[in-house]
């Protein structure tokens, strides 16, 4: 995992408050507004959101549909631009960037994990993971090595040549996580990553996220509407009507690795 390791947080710090003054902010949002115009109607999706997320944080964003959490995610993910307000990502103002500049930012600084996995079909796991590096212009041998490392780090060594339809949902989501990791982004943005998974597989995916966060200090933002999934994060931000309704640290963070150990070993074709 040398390719992904940037900060080595000690395991003792796992329940400590990472929001220390020392941690560098990865995301700084200052009075973000987003207004959609649908015909004659103006929809105010975000109404002045200010937020700071620091390096090494694991944040869950929650809210009902229409709360603005998807819009928030699109803006944080540089898929969309705010109508007003400033967005500093990893020290760079990205609120005014062009379409192509945002594509480059997404490629280098953000790793996406989606609800529907969003892997390329009829394409091997290895090639799927190589894809962001193709757009970053990483050379062949280096690209392959990094893709293999990333797949190994999510426990898919030996599955490199499998196509998505030959992998279970959990395995597909792990390929997606490997793809998100492979360009060493500043943050990983997971949009409902457990939405299509059963509860045990959900715990497995959360275990990978927690491990990446704890052992490699990767900043994670998790968008979910499931409160129990949100409890695997260290901090929960709840959106309502385009504003932040609650922003609090998780008092008793769930430990996916421990839960997995306690879960009865069921007959599971997903395990190799």
């Amino acid at each position: 995992m040398s390719t992904v390791a940037e900060i080595d947080l000690s395991t003792e710090a796992k329940h400590a408050d990472v929001e220390t003054p020392l941690a560098r902010p990865v995301i700084q949002l200052d009075h973000i507004h987003k207004i959609y115009t649908m015909g004659d109607v103006e929809v105010h999706a975000l109404r002045g959101v200010s937020l700071t997320i620091r390096e090494g944080e694991f944040v869950a964003i929650m809210g009902a549909s229409g709360s603005g959490k998807s819009t928030m995610m699109n803006i944080i993910g540089c898929l969309d631009r705010p109508s007003r307000g400033a967005y500093i990502l990893d020290g760079q103002d990205v609120s005014e960037l062009s379409k192509d500049e945002r594509a480059d930012i997404r490629n280098r600084k953000i790793g996406f994990v989606f609800q529907g996995f969003n892997l390329l079909s009829r394409t091997s796991a290895l090639e799927n993971v190589e894809l962001p590096m193709l757009y970053a212009g990483v050379e062949g041998a280096e690209r392959r090595r990094r893709a293999l490392d990333a797949l190994a780090s999510v426990g898919l060594a030996g599955r490199e040549q499998n196509h998505p339809n030959q992998l279970s949902g959990g395995q597909q989501q792990r390929v997606a996580v490997a793809r998100a990791l492979v360009n060493q982004p500043a943050l990983i943005l997971a949009d409902e990553p457990t939405g299509n998974l059963d509860s045990r597989t959900s715990v497995e995916v959360m275990e990978i996220f927690q491990r990446l966060n704890r052992e490699h200090g990767i900043t994670l933002i998790l968008v979910t509407h499931e409160p129990d999934i949100a409890e695997y994060a260290k901090r929960i931000i709840v959106f309502k009507d385009g504003r932040i309704k609650r922003d609090e640290l998780v008092a008793d963070q769930r430990d996916a690795a421990e839960e997995l150990r306690n879960l009865p070993e069921i007959v599971d074709e997903e395990e190799d």
Binding site: G77, L79, A103, N118, L119, L120, L131, P132, Y135
Partner: peptide
């Protein structure tokens, strides 16, 4: 369309 969306999300420019 989805494939194009994936490619764009992970950093493909329009020109690419």
């Amino acid at each position: 369309t989805r494939e194009i969306g994936i490619r764009m999300a992970i950093g493909a420019r329009s020109s690419a």
